[in-house]
Lab assay of single mutants.
Amino acid sequence: SPEEIKAKALDLLNKKLHRANKFGQDQADIDSLQRQINRVEKFGVDLNSKLAEELGLV
């Protein structure tokens, strides 16, 4: 269901964000992850996106 997909995506992105902060990645990478999280919260996951591929939806 779209809600489950959204939850999985947010979980994955939050893990990536945590790792980025923990290991001191570029601020641009961290900002990009934050924008992705905001986009998923607002609009859900686009099944044509790279994120959908990472989640194994495509």
Rank of each mutant, 00 (worst) to 15 (best):
L12W: 12
I37C: 01
E53G: 07
I30V: 10
L33A: 01
I5W: 14
K8P: 01
K16Y: 06
L55E: 01
I5Q: 05
L51R: 00
D31L: 10
D26I: 08
A52I: 06
N14T: 10
R39F: 15
N21K: 15
I30M: 05
G44Q: 01
I37T: 01
R35C: 14
D46T: 06
N14F: 15
V45H: 01
A52F: 09
I5G: 03
E4H: 09
L55W: 03
K22R: 10
Q34G: 04
L51D: 02
L57W: 07
A7G: 05
G44A: 02
Q36D: 08
L47D: 04
D11K: 12
A20K: 03
E54G: 03
E54C: 07
A20M: 12
R39M: 15
L12G: 01
L33P: 00
L33F: 04
A28H: 12
A7N: 09
D11R: 09
V58C: 07
S1K: 09
G24I: 04
D26S: 15
N48C: 11
L57H: 04
R39P: 00
V40Y: 01
V58D: 08
N48F: 10
K15I: 06
E3K: 08
R35G: 06
I30Q: 03
V45Q: 01
K50M: 09
D46I: 05
E41Q: 13
A20G: 03
K42S: 09
R19M: 15
S1E: 07
D11T: 05
F43L: 07
F23V: 09
K22P: 02
E53P: 01
V45I: 13
E41A: 08
L17H: 01
R39L: 15
K8T: 06
L47Q: 05
R19W: 15
A9P: 00
V45D: 01
Q36L: 15
A9L: 06
A52D: 02
K42T: 07
A9N: 00
H18A: 13
I37V: 05
A52E: 02
A9M: 05
E53K: 14
L33W: 03
K50G: 06
E3N: 06
H18L: 13
A7M: 12
K16Q: 06
E54Q: 06
L55I: 06
G44S: 02
F23M: 13
L13E: 00
N38S: 12
L17V: 04
L55G: 01
R39W: 15
L57P: 01
S1P: 05
V45M: 05
F43H: 10
D26L: 08
Q27P: 10
L10K: 03
L12I: 11
D29S: 14
A20V: 05
K8R: 13
D11F: 11
K42Q: 13
G56V: 03
